[in-house]
């Protein structure tokens, strides 16, 4: 995979949150939200990012878009390290990378009409001459996401969940981005609505040659949407590979446990559910060895000696585990 194919390259990204106590705000602990993540996203692909709560996937997404400032590492977008840019310089680049958020009810300003919401990006960057032009663009965007002129003057509370999310997608597309981070875009929607939104996203990706980072906890959905899947656990990527590699032949014990925790919708598969024991340790001051050690059914003493690194175990399939 050559460098020119990579749209986004994340190198050793770190983000910590500090717990402070007392009037003088002494630091008493450090939460390792994102702890040295390396990731490459190719142009035009959909990379699925799976993780449970505390995995750091949400923080990672926000670091990529500089909604949170990371503490260390590089985020190289189209050849440029965006972390080194000043806020002003980065503002220009923001147009190329947008995000669709989880709960459309809270990600849309309730006091704005659909037209205002969808064209806000254009107004902020001064991209349109006048209101007429903005309205035309708004109509075109609405058509792209399956809404119509009758929705222009509506308010978010007048729309259903699925329609709100379509508005959010239209808003993200207004600036003609190349890269879209989808942060659990359908988790707050009913399953019948979810399917339509996912189809919409697939069609838009083909139409506009978009690159997606699809973050979710719903593995069945991500299995359908993604070309490649990365699994995070406590701030680190533990396995990454092509979708069918990770889903059908996972190597990391956590990924195996995760997959076998999913209850099957096939009644004949009842009873195959296998829950891993224990709970994830706190991301506060994690141990200096494999973070899955306390829950791993295959743990050996060697696993306690150091943190495992990502190693290529077969073609394009990487695992961070001492067993390999």
């Amino acid at each position: 995979m050559s460098k020119t194919e990579a749209l986004l390259e994340i190198v050793d990204l770190k983000k910590y949150f500090y717990l402070r106590k007392g009037i003088l705000r002494r630091v008493i602990g450090r939460i390792h939200a994102v702890d040295g993540v390396n990731l490459t996203i190719r142009r035009g692909e959909t990379l699925g990012l799976i993780g449970e709560s505390g995995s750091g996937k949400t923080t990672l997404a926000r670091c990529i878009l500089r909604l949170i400032e990371p503490d260390d590492g590089k985020v190289i977008f189209d050849g440029e390290d965006i972390l080194k840019l000043s806020k002003k310089e980065f503002r220009r680049l923001r147009r190329k990378m947008q995000m669709v958020f989880q709960d459309p009810a809270s990600s849309l300003d309730p006091r704005m009409t659909v037209e205002a919401l969808v064209t806000e990006g254009l107004r902020l960057h001064g991209l349109c001459k006048d209101r007429e032009e903005r309205r035309d663009i708004a109509l075109k965007l609405l058509k792209d996401v399956g809404l119509g002129e009758e929705h222009l003057h509506k308010y978010p509370h007048e729309l259903s969940g699925g329609m709100k999310q379509r508005v959010a997608i239209a808003r993200a597309l207004a600036l003609q981005p190349e890269f879209l981070v989808l942060d659990e875009p359908t988790s707050a929607l009913d399953v019948s609505v979810q399917a339509k939104i996912l189809n919409l996203l697939i069609n838009l990706q083909k139409k506009y040659n978009l690159t997606y980072l699809f973050i979710t906890h719903d593995i069945s959905v991500v299995a359908h949407m993604s070309d490649r899947i990365a699994v995070m656990y406590l701030g680190k990527i533990v396995e990454i590979g092509e979708t069918n590699q990770v889903i059908n032949s996972p190597y990391h014990p956590y990924v195996k446990a995760l997959l076998s925790s999913i209850p099957s919708t096939d009644p004949k598969m009842r009873g195959r559910l296998k829950a891993p024991k224990g709970e994830p340790p706190s991301p506060l001051n994690p141990p200096p060895y494999c973070r899955f050690y306390n829950r791993c059914p295959l743990a050996r003493p060697a696993c306690k000696e150091s943190e495992p690194e990502l190693k290529e175990i077969e073609n394009n399939h990487y695992v961070a585990c001492h067993l390999y």
Binding site: R94, S106, S107, A168, R171
Partner: peptide, 26 residues
């Protein structure tokens, strides 16, 4: 801390724009 403020920041709004268009009206 509301999501829609974060969303607008993502679109490229600076502090002044956020305050004037989203916070003051509320």
């Amino acid at each position: 801390e509301r999501r829609f403020i974060e969303a607008v920041r993502c679109l490229g709004a600076n502090d002044a724009q956020i305050i004037v268009y989203h916070i003051l009206p509320n």
